[in-house]
Amino acid sequence: MASQVVLQTAGLNMVYRHGKLAVHALRDIELTVHEGEFVAIMGPSGCGKSTLLHLLGGLLKPSSGDIFIDGMNIVKLKDRERTEIRRKKIGYIFQRFNLLPTLTAAGNLALAKRIHGNGYLDEKETEEILRLLGIQDRMDQRPIELSGGEQQRVAIARAVLNKPSIILADEPTGSLDSTNSKVVLRLLRETNHHLKQTIVMITHDPEAAHTAQRIIEMRDGQIISNNAGFYHEAEMDGIF
């Protein structure tokens, strides 16, 4: 396991207020993720895992506590600076793929490069990733012309393309059948292995969670367990 900490939370709390009603989505979350780690966060709906992912990605500001990305406390940053961190260091993968429907697969990847501005994979590396994901021949198709599995593979390519240090995956297999789910999970592991990117994936599927190196289980806004998964680099091919 890599030793450098890339993601860390300290005393993280999130309270949603609706008038006089206060809903504690997260309570005192202490989380540490190392470079190159593949971590799954599991738990039932409403346990706070999506909120945690949004906080880690800087999309939300916590009610209290700190979030460190590569040692920088993003809670203290302005909105513009958090956006900068997200652009440079974080890649998102969503449950519903969230490709821009008006653009082709290639257009979606080009847009990600355009937003990032620099530091993305060169042409050779991009081709390699596309070949690894098996979508090199589908680049001229619009999302609507792609299957769910293909769309998610394009979304993975979009997320890893700019070489972010952290990939945040929000139930990446939630909208896929079991065959495509396995393909996507394998690809996530392979890109994790290949590009040495840290992956934090939330899921409510135990099978998906067990492909990670570490499984963090949440309930009622709290971490209730933090165990090793089945993922071992040496066993990669064996599982699938």
């Binding site: 999309l59 956006t83 821009l100 937003i115 990032h116």
Partner: peptide, 8 residues
């Protein structure tokens, strides 16, 4: 989506 991708 654009914002999640880091679009300012």
């Amino acid at each position: 989506i654009l914002k999640a991708m880091g679009a300012p």
